[in-house]
Amino acid sequence: MRRWARSGATRDRGSGSILAVAILGALFAVTAVLVPVLALLPAKQLVQGAADAAALAAADTASGLMPGVPCEMAARAAELNAARMTGCTVRGLIATVSVAGSAGIFPIGSRARAGPAP
């Protein structure tokens, strides 16, 4: 009877090591997926900041606070913030600007609107 108990116990030897390797592998896989995804968050904020600055530049130019053409000023503001302007519309004193940037191979876009307070 003791022989059966011993042989069953010896078959389980080393299973903890296999479990530890499996857990470490799963942890590595999750980390490998999450790191690039989390790297997109600051890049998205940078592109949103560029869109905000471009919209403010266009609205300031449209209202006469700055000389120039509103959409040209918006493109320059986006460029200074490491983004490129993809669209610009000005209706009255309200400017809507779309910009694009990238984080590695992922394209990121954002839109912003600026103008006088309602």
Rank of each mutant, 00 (worst) to 15 (best):
A100N: 04
T89H: 05
A5Q: 10
D60S: 07
G49P: 05
L80Q: 13
V69T: 14
A53Y: 01
V30K: 11
S17A: 15
R3P: 05
A77R: 05
V69R: 12
S98P: 01
A59S: 12
E79V: 07
E72T: 08
R113S: 10
S15F: 14
L38G: 15
A9N: 07
S7M: 13
G16D: 03
R113C: 04
L46K: 12
P116Y: 00
A50S: 11
I108C: 06
P42Y: 08
A77S: 11
R2W: 12
F28H: 07
S15E: 04
D60P: 01
P36R: 13
R91D: 15
A82I: 01
P118A: 12
V37P: 10
S102Y: 02
S98H: 11
G92Q: 11
A57I: 04
A117K: 05
A22Q: 02
T86W: 02
G101V: 08
S102K: 03
P67A: 13
S102W: 00
V33W: 15
R11L: 11
L38D: 01
R91G: 14
T86F: 06
G8E: 13
G49F: 03
A74F: 05
A50N: 04
A77T: 03
D12L: 14
L24K: 11
T89F: 02
S17V: 12
A29S: 13
A117F: 06
A95E: 05
A43C: 12
R76I: 09
M73W: 01
V90G: 04
S63P: 00
A75C: 03
E79G: 15
S102L: 00
I18K: 05
M85N: 05
R6H: 14
C71G: 02
L24W: 09
L41S: 11
R13Q: 09
P107I: 04
L19C: 06
I94P: 00
A62R: 02
S7Y: 10
L80D: 13
V47C: 04
G8V: 13
A95W: 00
A53S: 14
P107D: 06
T86C: 05
A95G: 04
G16I: 09
C88Y: 04
A74N: 02
C71M: 02
F106A: 14
A55H: 05
A112V: 03
S98G: 13
S98V: 01
G104L: 06
Q48K: 13
